[in-house]
Each structure stands twice: as structure tokens, then as C-alpha cells.
Write a protein that binds this DNA or RNA. Sequence first.
RNA 1: GGCCCGUUCGUCUAAGGGCUAGGACACCACCCUUUCACGGUGGUGAUACGGGUUCGAAUCCCGUACGGGCUACCA
Length: 397
Amino acid sequence: MEKKVRVRFAPSPTGGLHLGGVRTVLYNYLFARKHGGDFIVRIEDTDQGRYVPGAEEYIFDTLRWCGLEPDESVQHGGAFGPYRQSERKESYRQYAEQLINDGHAYYAFDTPEELEKMRQDHRTNENPSPQYDHTIRMTMRNSLSLTAEETKQLLEAGTRHVIRIKMPVNETIRFTDMIRGEVVFESNTVDDKVLLKADGMPTYHLAVVVDDHLMQISHAFRGEEWLPSAPVHIHLWKYLFGLDQMPQWAHFPLILGPSGKLSKRDGAKYGFPVFAMNWTDPKTGELTEGFKEKGFLPEAFINLLALLGWNDGTEQEIFLKEELIEKFSMDRVHSAGAKFDYEKARWFNHEWIKKSAVGSLESGVRTLLEASGLNNIDSAKLQAGDYIGKGSLYTDS
RNA sequence: GGCCCGUUCGUCUAAGGGCUAGGACACCACCCUUUCACGGUGGUGAUACGGGUUCGAAUCCCGUACGGGCUACCA
């Protein structure tokens, strides 16, 4: 029997959700709906140092606004909880220990200073960023280079340590990406990534594999920036649960700004929103504008996002969510990155505004007019268009 | 530097061996319109380069160039 389709979006709550993130949600959602599967949102909050209050709420508010509600999540419940990785902390260590017992991982006691020194000592023009890999691990302080007795003593003394994967030597690693086809890596070029941090939290690498397994994820979709760490994850699957259990993967093309991967900086610099909704950084008070507050209709927003890297093969550009669900297919997702074009985004919104009934637009327009300082707005006048020119759905100036 | 991914109009893209390389955004011109919108017609504009394979290549292979990503006890 075919495994039930279960996909997940796994954001880390560190700030606003930007275009690329929402598109990843969208493609997950469409895929799940199309195949009668489940869409799960799992909060990846394993870095307590980057915890940002409000970010998690913001993510769910955004999904609600977009109409992309998950079936299972912190807020929606489900049979595979907890859906917040910090609450799953205890379960990760046993998997890391299991890897050590099986000879696929090891304890490493190197301090940050020692790591820095290693990088310093090995840094050359040829090799500007030395890795903690098979060529140097025996020169570091870990359970591979130390005797069993020394390791035991360090552990018993409560020495701060991490657990690293022991990447094999001379292995060719390959997998089939749903978008890119076969991708090949040499294990020698991959470093011994940290799996469990000194604070007992897992890194993304361990957590994503363990949780995808525990939550019975059938297809794992993420951005292209994750492609280089795929060999680590493949090995973890192989060692922990078996390659035949591994979800099918697809790495989405990046959404590019004027110069490289789209960042929230680009928005401020070039004057277009990057986040789905307004986001105010609780620490700095800095506001990053969102599409919602810029006057974008959620239907237009997901429509334009869908077409950024995917099309149905026809010349249709305006799609209802239902049509997207019906027509979406992973093999029509592009492999090349797409540069975000704000003008085209505005056109999508324009088309959706034209399709909308006047009444349905009223409250949004009213909000925008009020935001630009107009009060005592008369509903009849508003619908008659008397306020045109006083403000704009595209409040750019 | 190493590894990985990618490369069709300025931008998003279609065409998965056989066409004058199609559409959309933007831009330009014209038309419609009292204004603002809307709408209509037309136009400029692309297969990175070099080798193969083939009767035939934007499509397949190799190389080069260029672009991007990754290279943290961040995701």
C-alpha cells in the first residue's frame, strides 16, 4: 500500500515569514491537498539563542491570512505532537547515542576556542574554511582520538560536549530529487556535522530526520539552500531508520532579489515588501513591511507566489486556489532560481482586485485610507470611487 | 578555495529532437476615454560560448564562462 502523503513546513520562529517561506508553505499545501494528504507545521525552535517572541504567532497568523491552514500543528493539534521541537528535546539524545553505539557518531569535547584555533591553523588561500572532517578529526579532542577510558572520564565529569556524525570515507552518495533528478555527492567532501549540541538540543540535521520519521512524513520539501546538507541527512536516515523509509525529497529553487537570495534587506533597499505581513522586530522595533498591509489580496499573493517557479504548461496565469490544487505538480516546478519582480506582483494583485466585488474590497480600502490619514470615510462615496487619488492600494509614495 | 545547483526577451516563463522560438509583466507607439481607471491594436526584445551526437538541437553529452547556494554547537 502506498504511504499516505504527509508533508510538513518546518520554520524556525526567528522573525517574519518572507516570500520564499510562504511559497514553500504553498507548494507543500498544494501537494498535500492534491494528493489527499496531510499538511503539518512543525516549529523548529532548537536554537534558544535565536528565539524571537511573537514569531511563532506571526507564522500562524500569516498562514491564516493566506488561507493555507495546516492540518496538524501547535495550534491545530494532531496525533504526532508535540509540534514544537523544543518540547521534543528528550527524544533526540537517544538517537544520537544510538548512532555512537553503532559507530556512526562520536562525542566531541572541543571548546569553541579549540575549534577556532583549528580553523585558524588550517586556513590557507586554497582552503579558506577548514572543516571538521575525516582528515582532521583524529587531531581533535573526541571519542575517536581519545581512549575509551579518557572519554568515559570526561563524560562522567560532566564535560561540555557535542555529538558529531562520523561521515564515512570514499562513499558516493546519491538520491533522486523530485525536481532535479539524480544528485551526487562524495562523502569525503562532507564534514562531521554536529548532531547534538552542548545544551542537549539537536541541530537541524538530527531533528529533521528524527521528526520526519516520527511524524511519518512521506515527502520532504525545502529550499535549495539545503541541498548541500542532503548527504548528512541521507546518512542519518540510513543509520537510524533505513533508506527505504526516507521521504521523497524536492529542493525548491531560490527566490532571488536584485542581488542573490532575496532578503528582508532587499525590501527596505528597493522599496517592496518581502514579508507576508508587517513584522516588527521586538528587540530593535524595526518594522518590515508586508504584502498584506501594502494592499495585496491573499488570493493574489498566493497566485503570484505559485507562478514564481511553477506553471501549468498553458498560458494561464490567474489561478484560484482550487485550480492550483488541481493543477499543481512537482515535476513542473523549475530548477532555476526566480528573480522576484515587484511590478509583476502588482499586476497579479491588480487582476485580483478587478475580479473582486466592490463590497468585498471596501474594508481593505478603508483600512488603507485611514492608515494614510483619512477619517470619516463615507461608505457610499467609497464604493462610488470618490476617494480615488486620495490614497492608493499601492501606497508606494 | 572546495562542494552542490543552475543558465530561453530586462523580469516570470512556454516549446521535454523537426515552428517565423509562444505568452505575461515592464517599456514604446497608436486607439478608446471629459478626468482617474479599464480596455484595444501594434512594436522593440532571448535560446551564454565552444565542441560533439543527429538528416535535424533551445531541447541530449562534454568543456568553458557566468550566476546562485552551502561551507556555525543558525535554520
